[in-house]
Simulated assay, not measured.
Amino acid sequence: MSKIVSLISFTETEQKRIQDIAPHYTITTGKAKELDPSVLRDAEILVGWPKSKPDELLHPDSKLKWVQTWSAGVDYLPQETFEERNILLTNTSGIHAIPISEMILGMMLSLSRNLKRAAVNQANGTWDASEDNMSELHGKTMVIVGVGEIGKATAKLAEAFGMNVIGVRRSGKEVEHVSKMVSMESFEEVLTDGDYVVNILPLTDDTRHLFNEQAFAAMKKEACFINVGRGATVDTSALLKALQEKQIASAALDVFEEEPLPSDHPLWSMDNVLITPHIAGSTPYYKERAFEIFIENLKAYVKNETLPRNLVDYSRSY
């Protein structure tokens, strides 16, 4: 029998749903380091991707045909090898739309309404009614760079707050709740319009360090830069310089080139920077949403049909 190996634990109910769809497959779950190497080599379908023993899955005798990751980002995977071996790759893109869009709005409100300063003052028992740097989201312009499912959800929330939304995506195709959409060729042109510039880009050869000195120089001095995409799409030194030299006003950062962010990094001590530890996509509903993507793809896979959800295009790396 063909084998499904999952590095994600499934409940009995979930395993039954898998078995009902794919009765000719056996299901094995467990951590990669605890599984016998032969189990990994015999896997036709893999759910997740291991930090340990990845070589077993790429062994010459490996039977691997499809990897369903448990993450949206796939930049850490050996995509060239997958493509050479005709291994399908699907991710969990889209399930982060609700938590990350809510996080983006939370970051914006924290900075515009001085909630970060209020939290520090509360911890110190300080009554500070200063209105310095207090602002509103209403009437401001948000530039979303990388308008996928997260960007669409964010645009909808921003519109509800009375904001104007400009979107940047590879195709330039229009999206609901985005008043103006441009292609990546116009990336720097629209940065000049953003009161809030939100980066939701995946990491590819084209997007690495896309946010560099030139990009930050193009932004308004009053702009807030928000990164919930991939850390390496931003040149951290350039961002730090832009903040220190007041080329931009503030930043809210959930992802970094180096994680964890070193405790002595200057970003930690900046009053105009809000830092969260790569938790923007965290939600108690992550597993059930990811599982439904896998189930939908599995139904197509056993029928030898094109996988309908989140099939990675190796030419784009996402």
Results as ranks from 00 to 15, higher is better:
1 M>N: 06
1 M>G: 07
5 V>A: 07
7 L>G: 07
9 S>P: 04
10 F>S: 09
13 T>G: 02
17 R>C: 09
17 R>T: 13
18 I>Y: 08
19 Q>C: 08
20 D>I: 00
27 I>D: 09
29 T>L: 02
33 K>Q: 11
36 D>M: 02
37 P>M: 05
38 S>M: 11
45 I>V: 15
45 I>D: 03
48 G>N: 07
51 K>Q: 13
56 E>C: 12
60 P>R: 12
62 S>L: 07
63 K>L: 08
67 V>A: 04
71 S>T: 14
73 G>E: 03
73 G>K: 00
78 P>Q: 10
83 E>G: 01
92 T>Y: 05
92 T>F: 05
98 I>C: 01
100 I>V: 15
102 E>T: 07
103 M>G: 01
112 S>P: 03
114 N>W: 06
119 A>L: 13
129 A>W: 05
132 D>F: 14
133 N>E: 13
133 N>M: 05
135 S>Y: 12
141 T>I: 13
145 V>P: 01
146 G>D: 03
149 E>G: 00
159 E>T: 15
159 E>H: 14
160 A>I: 01
163 M>T: 10
163 M>P: 08
164 N>E: 14
166 I>Q: 04
169 R>W: 05
171 S>A: 10
171 S>E: 07
173 K>E: 14
174 E>Q: 12
175 V>W: 03
176 E>S: 08
181 M>W: 06
191 L>H: 09
193 D>Q: 12
197 V>S: 11
199 N>F: 03
200 I>L: 15
201 L>D: 01
210 L>D: 02
213 E>Q: 11
215 A>T: 11
215 A>P: 10
218 A>M: 02
219 M>L: 08
220 K>H: 09
221 K>I: 07
226 I>H: 10
228 V>D: 00
228 V>L: 06
231 G>K: 12
233 T>E: 08
238 A>P: 09
241 K>R: 14
244 Q>C: 03
246 K>S: 15
251 A>F: 14
252 A>S: 12
254 D>P: 01
254 D>Q: 01
259 E>G: 07
263 S>D: 12
268 W>A: 06
269 S>T: 13
277 P>W: 10
278 H>A: 04
279 I>E: 14
279 I>K: 15
279 I>R: 13
279 I>P: 04
280 A>R: 12
283 T>E: 05
285 Y>S: 11
287 K>G: 03
288 E>K: 12
293 I>K: 01
296 E>I: 04
299 K>T: 03
300 A>G: 00
302 V>D: 02
303 K>V: 04
305 E>Y: 01
306 T>M: 09
